[in-house]
Amino acid sequence: MKLLYFAWVKTRIGLAGEEVTPPAGVATVAQLMTWLAARGPGYAAAFAEPERLRAAVNQDFAGPEIAVSAGDEVAFFPPVTGG
């Protein structure tokens, strides 16, 4: 699974992206966030307030209940501020 981080999510984690293999049982965006939050202090800070985060699965906005699986591109970022 390919993960991408943007804006302050990237700053807190200290990575723009990474390849991960989550354990069985990580089947949704919400479960992926919980798993990631336990990987270290930077991750814990990035995922401390899930309601302030947005996610995309394969470049479409995805809510917490959306399924994720190996081979997906999953991105985490704050609410967008374009224009």
């Binding site: 804006a7 991105a75 967008v80 374009g82």
Partner: peptide, 27 residues
């Protein structure tokens, strides 16, 4: 639509300090 759907983020610099701009409810 662009304001709320396009994945852009703004990092402001004020007096050398950088801060991510929060999304606006009005948008």
């Amino acid at each position: 639509w662009l304001k709320t759907e396009a994945p852009f983020w703004k990092l402001e610099e004020r007096q050398g300090e950088a801060r991510w701009v929060e999304a606006r409810k009005s948008d």
